[in-house]
């Protein structure tokens, strides 16, 4: 099921069909699938944003939020910036999108404590994306790994969003 979907989408993206608004529904369903199954396809998501750019009346804030949150899960890659460049100028007024942008901003600045703080304040937003927290933790591990030779255990647990016990050890590895 998921595989066929992926193939269909890949087929759409290869041709000029990627600009056809009639395909928007399929692509949007694909975004929701990614949120649910913890998979990721940047190119398809950018195609959705592009369709919104070309057809502003079809803009869907909810899907856009999912795309942006998914982009956060792919740090340290700059997917979020790529998405941001394609957002409509009018989107700036959307409250949730502004919040996600703020999350991205502090994540880019590696202010992880602040980031987790924010995330915990809006649990329903991020929990829609399966595997969201773990993906971010992976990014934290990446940055800490390239910066520190040794680091205090409590400090690290903090940066990872206050996890302990077994979970902590799976990440430390």
């Amino acid at each position: 099921m998921a595989e066929t979907m992926k193939q269909t989408v890949a087929g759409i993206l290869k041709t000029i069909e990627r600009y056809n608004p009639a395909n928007l529904q399929t692509l949007e369903r694909y975004v929701e699938m990614q949120s649910r199954d913890n998979t990721y396809d940047l190119e398809a998501n950018l195609a959705v944003l592009k369709l919104y750019q070309f057809n502003p009346e079809k803009f869907n804030a909810d899907i856009t939020c999912q795309i942006l949150l998914k982009a956060l899960t792919n740090f340290p890659h700059t997917d979020f910036t790529l998405c941001k460049c394609l957002l409509l100028e009018s989107v700036a007024e959307n409250e949730t999108i502004s919040q996600i942008k703020y999350l991205a901003d502090i994540l880019e600045q590696c202010d992880f404590a602040q980031f987790w703080n924010r995330v915990h304040q809006m649990p329903e937003l991020c929990s829609r994306i399966n595997g969201f927290h773990d993906s971010i933790r992976k990014f934290v591990c990446h940055v800490v790994g390239i910066t520190f030779q040794t680091i205090d255990k409590n400090n690290l647990a903090n940066l990872l969003g206050g996890i302990d016990g077994m979970l902590f050890f799976t990440f430390v590895q």
């Binding site: 340290p76 890659h77 700059t78 880019e108 600045q109 590696c110 202010d111 992880f112 940055v143 800490v144 390239i146 910066t147």
Partner: peptide
């Protein structure tokens, strides 16, 4: 510490 993490993060490019 945050700035230093940021330094490493931003200077590691694809």
């Amino acid at each position: 510490a945050i700035h230093l993490l940021c330094f490493k993060h931003k200077m590691k490019n694809v």
